[in-house]
């Protein structure tokens, strides 16, 4: 591995200043599970790694009881999310996505912020945050700004972050009652997978427990960036959600996708999986909503 100097700032401001000092010879590092692999493989060779792990507060995970907003620090690890009862109960789509990223060892190190900034089309972590209308808070040399997670990605390995900007947290707006959400990573094996295709669905229904008031259909590995199948979402909104309607939405989502052939899977099969899994995840959302309604 090419030698580098590790810088360990104590605040976000200090981190940004360090980047300003070293510019393109520096890289930020969160959990390190992607950055270290890239340095080892020679895909990047920074002289300075700015280690964000020691900055207090960046790994804070909490729900604001007053506003209902969920705040996820960028340095929150996948394992912290996976093991959080709050996430498991109230945000099943996050749980589904993060609990099968890499291995437990990787989840103990890898962070949700790192997963987003790595900006691979297969980033499991991005899908639920897009589905939940999450917003990313960016702090950089020119101050703070907010960007919807869905707008974070430009192309593989590239985000809208400008040099020196740090993703510090993601906020999820308060969830509307009667929300259901689910994610499936489809791959050849049960663990240690990068998804052949990743499908996240979020549905909000009316008091009749049937009419869809909001739909999110988010796809990973279906294009150069994680994407939303907006036409398919529109097909659901305002309609009573049935298996047939979900099948139709799945078909539309498959058409909207920009799947390709790759080592991991073939485009036609990826489309089929979108078609099938949009329906299955949609039905799971309804199950979750109905279950909660029964409990209430």
């Amino acid at each position: 591995m090419k030698p580098f100097t590790l810088l360990t700032p104590a605040t976000v401001e200090e981190a940004v200043a360090l980047f300003g000092q070293h510019k393109e010879t520096a890289r930020y590092m969160a959990g390190g599970t992607d950055v270290i692999v890239k340095v080892k493989e020679g895909w990047m060779g920074p002289d300075y790694l700015i280690n964000l792990k020691k900055i207090p507060g960046l790994n804070d995970l909490h729900k604001n009881e007053a506003t209902g907003e969920l705040s996820i620090g960028a340095l929150v690890t996948h394992a912290m999310l996976e093991q959080s009862l709050l996430i498991r109960n109230a945000y099943p789509i996050i749980y589904d996505a993060v609990s099968n990223i890499g291995s437990l060892q990787v989840r103990n190190m890898g962070t949700i912020g790192g997963n987003l900034i790595n900006a691979v089309p297969s980033a499991d972590g991005a899908i639920p945050l897009i589905a939940l209308d999450g917003t990313a808070l960016l702090v950089g040399p020119d101050g703070e700004r907010s960007v919807m997670v869905k707008d974070l990605f430009v192309k593989p390995y590239e985000t809208v972050l400008t040099p020196g900007e740090i993703l510090t947290r993601i906020t999820i707006p308060a969830q509307v009652p009667r929300t259901g959400s689910a994610y499936i990573k489809f791959g050849r094996r049960a663990a240690m997978e990068l998804p052949l295709i990743g499908i996240g669905v979020l549905l909000v229904v009316d008091e009749d427990l049937s009419t869809c008031t909001r739909a999110r259909i988010c796809l990973g590995v279906a294009g150069p960036t994680p994407l939303r199948a907006v036409k398919a979402e529109q097909m659901l909104e305002g309609q009573p959600v049935t298996s047939d309607l979900l099948t139709g939405a799945g078909k539309l989502a498959a058409e909207e996708s920009q799947v390709r052939d790759s080592v991991r899977g073939q485009a036609w099969h990826r489309k089929e999986m979108i078609r099938v899994q949009v329906r299955r995840m949609g039905l799971r959302c309804l199950d979750i909503i109905n279950q909660k309604a029964r409990q209430a």
Binding site: R189, A190, A191, M192, L194, V263
Partner: peptide
Amino acid sequence: MIKEGQIRNPNFRDYKLFTAKD
């Protein structure tokens, strides 16, 4: 996976050995 003589998946990420979960 070999394409035109070149191995496309020389790692445990894409060479799919069964895991304990499988």
